[in-house]
């Protein structure tokens, strides 16, 4: 199967500004240590772990928002360590969709305009934009809310708009860092189900993070992080994937 993500022995250390300089060992915090992860096309994958375990760090690295201290990451066959900033930006623009914990919709844009944004920055023609925005909104069940501004939408609706925005340009990979953290249980379950449905119907690859174990019931593959280390991967345990 086609490999979408390959994380090879990746570590990420952050410098600590206000640590005493004579303690070299404490000058860094290791957010991620020697992580390995392969994701193939069409997977629906969760990264689980307590707060501070390195979920955001790992997703940022895969999403080309951050760069590893050591190791390398291949996304859709591209070695991201070889990319210049503009190349990373292009990769994100064309191959990756993002869903954020705090929705992060552009407040002065309507739902439809928000969904349109990734197509806009790719220079897609307006006719095609309209068509694909309509499709994407339809697929998250929000066609009727197309012309609403985000502040008039509920939290659940906002995050569904964000999902539509993340899939409208048909990326190779959708990354969602704690997409349910600001939703109630009902909306959270609905959102995971929605993403799962899109994963099945469109064959889109999803990687999301959560610290809510209840949301992992129907997730095929779960990566567990503790203190920046991958402590378990249901795929390798089950042996059905890898």
């Amino acid at each position: 199967m086609e490999e979408i993500v390959n994380v090879e022995a990746v570590s990420r250390r952050f410098p600590l500004d206000n640590s005493p300089a004579h303690h070299p060992a404490h000058r860094f915090v290791s957010a991620l240590t020697h992580a390995n992860l392969r994701v193939t096309a069409g997977e629906f994958l969760a990264i689980a772990g307590p707060s501070g375990s390195g979920k955001t760090t790992l997703l940022n690295l895969i999403g080309c928002i951050d760069q590893p201290t050591t190791g390398r990451i291949l996304v859709d066959g591209v070695d991201t360590s070889q990319l210049k900033p503009a190349g990373m930006s292009k990769l994100r623009r064309e191959r990756i969709g993002f869903v954020f914990q705090t929705f992060n919709l552009i407040p002065v844009f309507t739902a439809a305009e928000n969904v349109e944004y990734p197509l806009l920055i790719q220079g897609v023609s307006s006719g095609e934009r309209r068509e694909r925005v309509a499709q994407a909104l339809e697929s998250v069940g929000l066609s009727s809310r197309a012309n609403q501004r985000p502040d008039l939408l509920s939290g659940g609706e906002r995050q569904r708009v964000a999902v539509a925005r993340a899939i409208v340009h048909r990326p190779a990979l959708v990354l969602a860092d704690e997409p349910t953290a600001n939703l109630d249980t009902h909306n959270a379950t609905q959102l995971i189900d929605l993403m799962h449905g899109l994963n099945r119907s469109l064959g889109l690859t999803f990687i999301f993070s959560t610290h809510d174990a209840r949301l992992l019931e129907h997730t095929e593959r779960i990566i567990r992080l503790t203190d920046g280390e991958v402590v378990s991967d249901t795929a390798s345990e089950g042996g059905s994937r890898g």
């Binding site: 999403g63 928002i65 900033p85 503009a86 930006s89 292009k90 990769l91 994100r92 623009r93 064309e94 990756i96 993002f98 954020f100 705090t102 992060n104 552009i106 407040p107 944004y117 990734p118 920055i121």
Partner: peptide, 16 residues
């Protein structure tokens, strides 16, 4: 700041 971060994350060119 966060909105700009979002736009940049989605691949908006810095010149934009």
């Amino acid at each position: 700041t966060r909105e700009i971060g979002t736009m940049l994350a989605m691949g908006t060119p810095r010149a934009w």
